[in-house]
Design a protein around this nucleic acid. Structure first.
Length: 497
RNA sequence: GCCGCCAUCGUCUAGCCCGGUCAGGACGCCAGGUUUUCAUCCUGGAAAUCAGGGGUUCGAAUCCCCUUGGCGGUACCA
């Protein structure tokens, strides 16, 4: 019944954090399924015991949930952090499917397309080195393929360690049509007899992947470019089982600025890091989806919501070449999304970042109220690039200000004129009632009083209120600080003269 | 080494399939304007001999061939 249904999966290994490249793979797989009315599932590939990291699974699921990449089957986590599985084709955790892989491998052995191998890793490594030294491609030499059935039984009975290898059909070529790259073909004689089952009884990725994708009815496999060259072996595996191979789409790589594969050494690679640095979910998704995909057809749209992408995403428009991860562009997209936030949203999202800052923690209580904070954020919103920078450039909204008298001076004002200017500001602000205390009105009153010499009035006012040369406009400063605090700071300025 | 993938402004990319606009947009950068400053915003600009070389053609980023470069794979990792 799954015959013609489009089904994609995200199949990460719980080895640490969510790499942005993996995240993009998940995003594309999700979007492709959504766009085509298919299913998206989450499977966990924990077949490497050595690389297993305890809380990696939790992180993975949290990020997928956070991003809103809803899946219909797979591994989930409830409110208490406990895992559970849902779906008719489970289990969805490979370490719980060992029996299945064992049977499948046995089936292949019996049909003659897989065989037992007793060579130990040391011997294998030595042979590889010899082959490399002789400029030959390092490949398994099929020593164990020559073993007689009795010998095999004997070794197994003696308890010798063994793996099961795929017996490659070395004649001819294997080709497949990649949805992104078109036809790709390989000479079969170059394919290695890869290991299917490891000596610890676990399957390799190469094997578990094929078995599970088939058993779970996966129709389209979206994965990184690094799997292109192992795909012909998978195809042979499908053939050996008598299964129809799914469609393949190999995604381009994400690159460092120097065009090498995106790596931790050259910056953050975990989605978690970007969240921590104040990037919004919508911005991360928007940025990442554009790394290798575009609307085309003359569209110049740059900003896309997840919902929109679900409608327009098309594998045909995925680029072939790798894409450099350009932080500047992410910053710009993030700023776009911050500008679109409502006052409540911005407030809600900013709190956790403010809570990490000393200037905020040490601020007086009246500067931590929701009402006050929302005013600060209203002023900050248009210039904020990352949430993590909230308040950074406007600390004067939270702290006592320190500045030298000369900073107050606009051009070459005399002390007399300075004092007069500040007093004029006091007079203007004093005359504005609580109901008129808003930026626009404050501005009108100030401009009226300033006449054509705005600088003489506004510059000293700016510095008196902020103690800084770079700040929002004096009227915005006054609006945020409130009448009382503004007047206090102005009087403090006069005292300095 | 062998195998494979890829190649348009600094970056993300449109155009390539179905040859013929000054190779278009965005980020970044520069300049001007608005804002008393900075940022925002607006306007303008510089920026790709379409990796290089050969063909085919009246005409090629677009079609063909070769070369080069980058990257990936070559594990009892995924």
């Amino acid at each position: 019944m799954l015959e013609n249904k489009i089904r994609t999966r995200f199949a990460p290994s719980p080895t640490g954090y969510m790499h942005v490249g993996n995240f993009r793979t998940a995003l594309y797989a999700y979007l492709f399924a959504k766009r085509n009315g298919g299913d998206f599932l989450l499977r966990i590939e924990d077949t490497d015991k050595k690389r297993y990291v305890p809380d990696a699974l939790e992180k993975l699921i949290k990020i997928i949930n956070w991003a809103g990449l809803d899946y219909v089957e797979g591994v989930y986590m409830d409110g208490d952090g406990k895992f559970f599985q849902k779906g008719d084709y489970g289990p969805y955790i490979q370490s719980e499917r060992l029996e299945i892989y064992g049977k499948c491998a046995q089936q292949l052995v019996e049909s003659g397309t897989a065989y037992y191998c007793f060579c130990d890793e040391e011997t294998l490594e030595k042979k590889r080195q010899e082959q490399t030294a002789n400029k030959q491609a390092p490949m398994y030499d099929r020593t164990c393929l020559k073993l007689a059935p009795e010998e095999i039984q004997e070794k197994i009975a003696k308890g010798e360690k063994y793996v099961i290898r795929q017996k490659i059909n070395t004649a001819g070529i294997t080709k497949y049509k990649d949805l992104i790259r078109g036809e790709i073909e390989f000479k079969n004689e170059l394919l290695d007899d890869q290991i299917l089952m490891k000596s610890d009884g676990y399957p390799t990725y190469n094997f578990a992947n094929v078995v599970d994708d088939h058993l779970m009815g996966i129709s389209h496999i979206l994965r990184g470019e690094e799997f292109i060259s192992s795909t012909p072996k998978y195809i042979q595996l499908y053939q050996n089982f008598g299964w129809n191979a799914p469609e393949f789409a190999h995604l381009p790589l994400l690159l460092n600025p120097d065009k090498t594969k995106l790596s931790k050494r050259q910056g953050d690679v975990a989605v978690e890091d970007y969240i921590k640095n104040g990037y919004l979910k919508e911005a991360i998704i928007n940025f990442v989806v554009l790394l290798g995909w575009n609307m085309g057809e003359g569209s110049t749209q740059e900003i896309f919501s997840l919902r929109e992408l679900e409608q327009v995403f098309d594998l045909k428009r995925v680029h072939k070449a790798g894409a450099v991860f350009d932080l500047k562009r992410l910053d710009w997209i993030n700023a776009q999304y911050i500008k679109k936030l409502s006052a409540d949203e911005l407030y809600g999202k900013s709190l956790e970042f403010l809570a990490q800052k000393d200037f905020y923690l040490n601020a007086p209580e009246n500067m931590k109220t929701e009402e006050y904070l929302k005013k600060v954020l209203t002023v900050e919103q248009e210039r904020l690039v990352k949430l993590s920078e909230v308040g950074e450039n406007n600390k004067f909204f939270f702290t006592d200000i320190e500045y030298g008298k000369d900073m107050l001076r606009w051009k070459d004002m005399s002390d007399e004129a300075l004092k007069e200017s500040l007093e004029k500001s006091i007079a203007v602000l004093s005359g504005i009632g609580a109901d008129g205390w808003e930026t626009k009105n404050i501005e009108e009153k100030l401009f009226a009083a300033a006449g054509d010499k705005k600088g003489d009035l506004l510059w000293p006012l700016r510095v008196a209120l902020s103690g800084a040369q770079k700040s929002p406009s004096p009227m915005e400063l006054a609006w945020v600080l409130g009448k009382q605090e503004s007047l206090n700071r102005l009087r403090g300025a006069i005292d300095r003269i």
